[in-house]
């Protein structure tokens, strides 16, 4: 009984710690007062203002665009890296390629951002590309740090599943392309999806690298939010937090339900 009590106590305290700040933020998003912390009454005022805030809406759209493009490119290249490291037995200098593909994982984002910005400025001086900083430079930077993360996911899936399935298909006379689409692809599809999702959230969440590499017309959502809350509080950002939490919770629940129905099958 003592053990059970301790377990429930640990989980209650742990999850309260994780959720208390978020729930408080959501509660205050309904506060009808410009001073965030002084309760005046329940209203949807900040939600209305949020949906009329051109700057935030535009930044949200920019972020979604960059995140989905970045995730797609990063996933394609992550799959290529995953394959080359697990499926090609005679790749020359394999440790070197492992080093290449995994070093972005340990690089602090502040150094990554600084080096990319200086690189873009110099390359603009020398070859005139990129012509200016903006969405393209943010996109390139996000792809660069996401590739390594996707590659890790794909690699661990490819190395953990039984290669004999592929060889069996080969022995049965299946042509290599067919092996890929009929055997390998279905097996690694979940890894590809989770890689894409991870790259998408990495890009959507990034403030530091984007702040370095952004330019006119490429303010992402974190950049706009950060400029609003750096020095003070903003009731509109409270409303935005509540909406983002709602989206995340709905996504999590639907993934849970999909998983459960898959397991039942």
């Amino acid at each position: 009984m003592n053990k059970l009590f301790f377990k429930i106590l640990t989980l209650t305290i742990g999850f309260s710690f994780l959720y208390f700040p978020i729930l408080t933020l959501i509660a205050y998003s309904f506060n009808d007062n410009k001073r965030v912390m002084v309760w005046k009454g329940f209203s949807f005022r900040w939600y209305k203002e949020l949906f009329h805030n051109e700057q935030i809406l535009e930044a949200f759209y920019t972020s979604l665009k960059i995140a989905s493009l970045s995730a797609t490119f990063a996933t394609v290249m992550g799959v290529m890296i995953g394959f080359s490291l697990t499926r090609i037995s005679k790749i020359p200098a394999r440790p070197f390629f492992i080093f290449l593909s995994s070093s972005p994982l340990v690089m602090p984002e502040i150094i990554l951002g600084l080096s990319l910005l200086l690189f873009f400025i110099s390359s603009n001086h020398i070859i005139g590309f990129p012509s200016s900083k903006g969405q393209l430079t943010v996109l390139i930077s996000h792809i660069t740090f996401s590739v390594a993360f996707v590659a890790v996911i794909i690699q661990s899936r490819l190395s953990s599943y039984d290669k004999n399935i592929e060889e069996a298909a080969q022995d049965l006379g299946t042509i290599p392309n067919m092996i890929f689409w009929k055997v390998t692809a279905p097996v690694i599809l979940p890894a590809i999806l989770s890689g894409w999702l991870l790259a998408f959230t990495l890009s959507l969440d990034d403030l530091v690298v984007a702040s370095f590499t952004t330019g006119p017309g490429a303010n992402t959502l974190p950049i706009v939010v950060f400029s609003k809350v750096r020095l003070g509080l903003s009731p509109e950002v409270n409303a935005l937090s509540a909406i983002i939490m709602l989206i995340v919770i709905l996504a999590a629940i639907s993934i849970y339900l999909i998983n459960r129905s898959n397991i039942k099958k």
Binding site: L18, P21, Y28, M37, L233, N238
Partner: peptide, 26 residues
Amino acid sequence: IMLIIPFWSSFLLRVYAWKVLLQGSG
């Protein structure tokens, strides 16, 4: 699922939540 939800939600906003909580009038 309850562990994954904070993992997915915005990093910046979770830091901001503590700024709200720790205010003098918080």
